[in-house]
Simulated assay, not measured.
Amino acid sequence: MGGLLDGEALERSSVVANCVMNRERGLSGSNGYGRELGIDVLEFLRGRVREGRRVRWLDLCCGSGRALFEASHRIGDAVEIVGMDLVGFFAGPSRPPGLRLITASVVDWVPEGLFDLVTCVHGLHYVGDRLGVLSRAASWLADDGLFVGNFDVDGVRLADGAPAGRRLVSALRASGLDYDARRRRVSCRGRREVTLPYRYLGSDDRAGPNYTGQSAVNSHYVHEP
């Protein structure tokens, strides 16, 4: 399929650069992390703290980081919180000691150490090789860590533009990832090496709105069983 964008061109796309998905999103409420991810982030982290362990949370495509500031103020430095975003328009003039915000691309950034929790709220809709990011995120988990993010299977297309569909869902589940089709969430419990039978070709930033109502990106792959 012609006209696909590579990673560098996609990151310059107005669809990606103008993404407002997480600019004002907080931890709770109708537009909060809890509703979007189906977990109470603070309670999850506090549960780990009560176990007397060093706790780390990584939020990919964190937008302004508003939810991370909120979490850091409420939970203190018992949890190390790392937020990563391509644009880097982060909230607040100063940061709590337990919060670190990084401007980078999720497709090639490599974190230091492992995490109890890795999240991605709607960010995958704007990533080129999103299957590659899923594989990488699963490898960043602690042995009993949790990854959860919004993921729309319809945004993954084959070379001819057809949706990857049920075959992709089967491949995700076979690799140890769980996909909730109704809520459009992907998750993984425990660190694992994920290998999916797809080779990335490029992305289309002219896909139009997805189920969120916001313009998104379609990622194209060749299925290689």
Rank of each mutant, 00 (worst) to 15 (best):
G3E: 08
L5V: 02
G7F: 11
L10T: 02
L10C: 01
L10N: 03
L10K: 02
E11P: 01
S13Q: 07
S14L: 12
S14H: 12
S14E: 12
S14V: 11
V15H: 05
V16P: 03
V16G: 00
A17C: 15
C19S: 11
R23M: 11
R23T: 09
R23G: 09
G26S: 08
L27Q: 05
L27R: 06
S28Q: 15
S28T: 15
G29L: 02
S30Y: 10
S30V: 10
N31Y: 10
G32P: 07
G32S: 02
R35H: 14
R35W: 14
E36K: 11
L37W: 01
L37G: 01
G38H: 04
V41E: 02
V41S: 05
L42D: 10
L42M: 13
L42A: 15
F44K: 02
L45P: 03
R46F: 13
R46I: 14
R46Y: 13
G47I: 08
R48S: 07
R48A: 08
R50N: 15
R50D: 15
E51L: 15
E51I: 12
E51C: 13
G52F: 07
R53P: 13
R53N: 13
R53V: 15
V55P: 06
W57I: 06
W57S: 05
L58S: 03
D59N: 00
C61P: 00
C62M: 02
G63T: 08
G63H: 06
S64L: 10
S64Y: 10
G65Q: 12
A67H: 14
A67G: 10
L68K: 05
L68G: 03
L68P: 03
L68S: 04
F69Y: 15
F69D: 12
A71N: 02
A71M: 01
S72P: 04
R74Y: 03
I75P: 01
I75S: 02
I75C: 00
A78V: 08
A78S: 11
A78W: 09
V79R: 04
E80F: 06
I81M: 11
V82S: 08
M84L: 13
D85P: 00
D85Q: 00
D85E: 01
D85G: 03
D85A: 01
D85L: 04
V87D: 03
V87Y: 03
V87C: 09
V87I: 13
G88K: 06
G88V: 09
F89T: 15
F89C: 14
P93G: 14
R95M: 12
P96G: 13
P97W: 09
G98T: 05
L99I: 09
L101T: 07
I102A: 03
T103W: 07
A104G: 05
A104F: 00
S105Y: 01
V106G: 00
V107T: 10
P111F: 01
E112H: 09
E112K: 07
G113Y: 04
L114E: 13
F115W: 06
D116E: 10
T119M: 00
C120Y: 00
C120G: 01
H122I: 05
